[in-house]
């Protein structure tokens, strides 16, 4: 293995250790999606006038993307905290490449997302959600790819706001909710005003949500799926390159 691969692997392993030691922490962070499923879901069913199963079919994939969005959107705060305490500094003095410090962390994001999304998908099956197994597997890969890119962006934001942490939370709050609403994740945007539809067309998460819906319903060969993967891949490339640059600059 080359040095960068080894370094990345070592950083990834370090990041995964607390998750493996404390797997229940993954369950606890499912509170938010469960609240949306339990309290927002019934409202959606009631107002849509469609049977519960049909509503769930479009709502659950959105919730899975929500897990990835919120899980990785806040992950930069861990790095922020490590920069404030000194443990990030310790890794900067160690002989590991700067890019591995970012890539290893971003790769780690994929693991909790896949586990959590899998749990939520399975939990909703008894309520009438029908899932295509191959679609679910591909859907998890798509979420992981999206989480990798979005997590890298969250780390970049942490690196950029290392001297004033309010900036991290400010920008994070200011972007997560608009991104969520303008992706059609909770409420479909078909009846939205024109400007919102235009904004959604520029939001990569819209494509991921649409692809996730297609995949879980078993519509595996559609172009929607391809565009979802393209959006997630572009986001990952942008996230990683911005993140690597931020990491090198901050060090």
């Amino acid at each position: 293995m080359s040095t960068i691969t080894t370094d990345t692997w070592n950083v990834l392993t370090r990041e995964l250790r607390p998750v493996l030691r404390d797997p229940f922490s993954l369950i606890f962070s499912l509170v938010q999606p469960l609240v949306f499923l339990g309290l927002f879901g019934p409202l959606l069913v009631a107002t849509s006038g469609q049977p519960a199963a049909a509503t769930l079919q479009s709502f659950v994939p959105g919730i899975l993307v929500m897990i990835a969005l919120f899980g990785t959107g806040t992950t930069g705060s861990n790095l922020l905290y490590e920069m404030q305490t000194g443990s990030h500094e310790r890794t900067l003095v160690a002989p590991i490449s700067r890019s591995s410090l970012l890539v290893g962390r971003a790769l780690k994001e994929m693991v909790p997302i896949m586990v959590q999304a899998c749990i939520i998908a399975l939990v909703t099956i008894p309520f009438g959600f029908s899932v295509n197994p191959i679609g679910l597997a591909l859907g998890l890969v798509l979420l992981a790819l999206f989480g990798l890119g979005f997590g890298a962006l969250s780390y970049s934001l942490a690196l950029a706001s290392r001297n004033n942490d309010w900036m991290f939370w400010g920008i994070q709050q200011a972007t997560l909710f608009p991104l969520m609403i303008l992706s059609g994740m909770l409420l479909p945007l078909e009846h939205a005003p024109q400007w919102m539809q235009v904004a959604a067309a520029f939001n990569p998460i819209s494509y991921v949500v649409a692809a996730e819906r297609a995949l879980l319903s078993g519509d595996l060969a559609s172009m929607t799926v391809v565009w979802g993967f393209v959006a997630a891949a572009v986001l990952a490339v942008i996230g990683l390159s911005v993140g690597i640059r931020a990491m090198k600059k901050a060090a």
């Binding site: 070592n10 392993t13 370090r14 250790r17 607390p18 030691r21 861990n78 905290y81 490590e82 404030q84 305490t85 000194g86 443990s87 500094e89 310790r90 003095v93 160690a94």
Partner: peptide, 19 residues
């Protein structure tokens, strides 16, 4: 350094192994 070198959510021995 002046700060705490170990990650707050890590276990003591795990951090040494990672290091």
């Amino acid at each position: 350094g002046q700060g705490t070198s170990a990650g707050h959510n890590q276990r003591v021995r795990d951090e040494l192994l990672s290091q």
